[in-house]
Nucleic acid binder design. Structure first.
Lengths: 139, 139
DNA sequence: GTGTTTGCAAACAATTTGCAGAATT
DNA sequence: AATTCTGCAAATTGTTTGCAAACAC
């Protein structure tokens, strides 16, 4: 049988994620936790993130950028990825569950759920681009 | 300047993809093209797939299974991934573009597009499960 | 003490890249 | 002849795993 034992590393990973509004990658988690526990290893971060996902305490978010992101909110919701900085954030809107009905009508298999990903440019990147263009046009 | 030269390998990759209703991975493309051109290398397959994507002739589809899939249909549409066999297919329904308006109202950044991914069990896996047969992963 | 978790390094899987030779124009 | 494309192998990147020591209960 497998009981769960306390680990300060795991605790701090949970805390760190909970304190973010975006959804960092394992490496970003690692870089940050290292401030507090300089000896933590990347393997431990990966192991704990996977454990937390399978415990249902956090959610793994894949968005096609080749890296997994982690979200402390396990409720079903939509995400946004910025094509400039790659940051992944929540989109605070209702999920369109009626889409699953439409899909089921037109698809020959059972639909169990869906995800949606919006992409574009986030606010801070939009601002940076505007400033960068202005400064860049110094001829 | 970079002109494009003919290559039978690239042609056969395009043909192979066009003849599939599902969206294979680079490795599956490789395995299949190898029947025709036994000396083709995986690197060439990857290079051509990337080239075709950047030419806008095919589409790259990421669906969180850790491998990229390739779709000969470049129009915006939704996908389905089977949690049993991993096969990725199209869902022939209209895209819900009004979602982008909703998202834009609630999100502080510019929304340029969206994708949706449905998941569940495809027909052939459902049948196999009912029969109790073994199932292999087809990516 | 028993079982879980850690740090480290090595292993892995998917994809990319450097290079010399082959193919296309 | 000039470029582009290929096959091969090595390199990269993100993630997982084996193991002995450290930690929690």
């Amino acid at each position: 049988m497998k009981t769960l034992k306390y680990s300060r590393q795991r605790e701090s990973i949970k805390e760190f994620l909970a304190g973010r509004k975006d959804h960092p990658t394992a490496d970003v988690v690692y870089m940050n936790i290292r401030q507090l526990y300089p000896n933590i290893s990347l393997g431990t971060v990966y192991r704990n993130l996977s454990l937390l996902v399978s415990l249902g305490e956090i959610q793994r978010v894949s968005c096609g950028d080749g890296v997994e992101h982690f979200d402390p909110n396990t409720a079903s919701h939509y995400h946004f990825i910025c094509r400039e900085c790659g940051k992944v954030q929540d989109v605070p809107m209702e999920t369109a569950d009626h889409l699953e009905k439409s899909a089921a009508e037109r698809f020959d298999g059972s639909i169990e759920g869906h995800t949606a990903l919006f992409y574009g440019v986030c606010r801070s990147c939009r601002e940076k681009i505007q400033k960068g263009l202005d400064k860049g046009k110094v001829m």
